[in-house]
Computed example of a mutant assay.
Amino acid sequence: MSDTAQSIWTSEGTAPARVRDYVDLLKPRVMSLVVFTGLVGVMIAPVHIHPFEAFLAVLAIALGSGAAGAINMWYERDLDALMTRTANRPLPAGRVAPDDALGLGVLLSIFSVLLMALATNFVAAALLTAAILFYVFVYTIWLKRRTPQNIVIGGAAGAFPPMIGWAAATGDVSAVGLSLFLLIFLWTPPHFWALALYRSDDYRRAGVPMLPVVAGPRETKKQMLFYTLILVPVALAPTLLGAVSWLYGIVALVLGVGFIAHAVIVWLAADDRRGHGAARRMFKFSLLYLAVLFAALPLDRLVVGRLLGGLVGG
Rank of each mutant, 00 (worst) to 15 (best):
A159W: 09
A159Y: 10
A159R: 10
A159V: 14
F160S: 08
F160D: 06
P162M: 13
A168M: 06
A168H: 08
G177K: 10
L178D: 00
S179W: 12
F181L: 12
L183Q: 10
W187G: 06
T188V: 12
T188Y: 06
P190H: 01
P190M: 00
H191G: 08
W193Y: 06
L195S: 01
L195D: 01
A196C: 03
A196M: 03
Y198A: 02
Y198G: 05
R199P: 00
S200C: 00
D202P: 12
Y203A: 02
Y203V: 03
A206H: 10
G207H: 07
V208K: 13
P209I: 09
M210Q: 08
L211C: 06
P212Y: 01
V213A: 11
V214I: 15
V214E: 10
A215I: 04
A215Y: 03
P217H: 14
E219M: 14
K221H: 03
K221D: 04
M224F: 04
F226W: 15
Y227A: 08
Y227K: 11
T228I: 11
T228N: 04
I230K: 07
I230L: 08
I230G: 00
L231R: 05
L231E: 10
V232I: 11
A235S: 15
A235N: 05
L236H: 05
A237P: 05
T239A: 15
L240Y: 04
L241A: 08
G242F: 02
G242S: 07
A243I: 08
A243V: 09
W246K: 14
W246Y: 13
W246H: 10
Y248L: 13
Y248K: 12
Y248D: 05
I250M: 06
G256N: 02
G258S: 02
G258C: 04
F259R: 02
A261K: 14
H262D: 00
V264P: 07
I265V: 15
V266M: 06
W267P: 00
L268E: 12
A269R: 05
A270C: 06
A270D: 11
D271M: 07
R273T: 09
R273Q: 13
G275T: 08
G277S: 13
G277C: 01
A278T: 07
R280P: 03
R281G: 06
F283K: 06
K284Y: 13
F285D: 04
S286H: 02
L287E: 07
L287C: 07
A291M: 14
F294P: 10
A295T: 10
P298I: 11
P298K: 14
L299W: 12
